[in-house]
Simulated scan of single mutants.
Amino acid sequence: MAFIEGILNNQTFAVCFISWFVAQILKVILTFIFDKKIDVSRFVGSGGMPSSHSSFVTSLATSIGIQRGYESLEFAMALVFALIVMYDAAGVRRAVGKQAKILNKMIEDIQEHRKDVFNEKRLKELVGHTPVEVLSGAILGIIIANIMV
């Protein structure tokens, strides 16, 4: 019980959660604005604008920086963690999404000729982020942390 109470009273965790939540809500709103459809799966899905991963980790680093100091070991660790997550989102995970798109097209082309070759579901293509999506998420996380802490 003390663990749950501690988490619920942890300001830094609250900042991170709110930052993630706002980013996910913005994905649903932006999908509605640009695609003219309500897609609630965007609330829990990865990829898209803004990066909730970036928002989450930059709000963590910013919150720690404000509370412990930007010269602290805790801030340095959070910053390194944030940079790794954002690099992964725009690099590795984005490449995975591009590969999934190509593989899905290849499977469609093969299935046009032979229906019995693949029974797998389509691979998820929206996995990573563009640099703009990562930067937008990072800015969102920094702003929310500065407002809340």
Rank of each mutant, 00 (worst) to 15 (best):
V85I: 15
H113L: 11
K124I: 15
M148I: 13
A61D: 08
A90W: 01
L79Y: 11
H113Y: 12
R93V: 09
G45A: 15
M1T: 06
V85G: 04
V57D: 08
V132P: 02
S46E: 10
L73K: 10
W20E: 04
S63C: 08
A14V: 03
V40E: 03
V85M: 13
E108H: 13
K37H: 02
V22M: 05
H53V: 13
L30E: 02
V117Q: 11
Q111W: 04
N146G: 09
D116L: 05
V132I: 14
G6N: 11
E125L: 08
C16F: 02
L83Q: 11
Q111S: 15
T58G: 03
D109A: 05
T31G: 14
S52F: 00
K105H: 10
E120L: 15
I66R: 09
V57G: 03
I143G: 05
F13E: 02
I84C: 11
E112Y: 04
L83V: 12
P50T: 10
T12H: 06
T12Q: 09
V57S: 05
G91F: 14
V44I: 15
R68Y: 12
S63Q: 04
R114Q: 07
I84K: 09
K115F: 06
A82P: 00
M148Y: 14
R42G: 01
I38W: 08
V149Q: 07
V132A: 11
G45D: 02
G69Y: 11
H53C: 04
V80P: 02
V149Y: 14
I25G: 02
G45K: 03
E112T: 06
V132F: 14
I29T: 02
W20Q: 05
I7R: 04
S72E: 03
Q24W: 05
M106V: 15
H53I: 11
L140S: 13
E125D: 08
A76L: 13
N9I: 10
F75Y: 15
N146M: 13
A61K: 00
V92L: 09
L26V: 03
R68I: 00
A90I: 10
E125Q: 13
T62C: 15
Q24S: 09
V57N: 11
F81H: 11
L26M: 13
A138V: 07
A82I: 02
P131S: 07
G45L: 01
L8P: 05
L79W: 14
M86T: 07
K105A: 13
I147D: 08
K27V: 04
D35P: 01
A2I: 14
F3I: 14
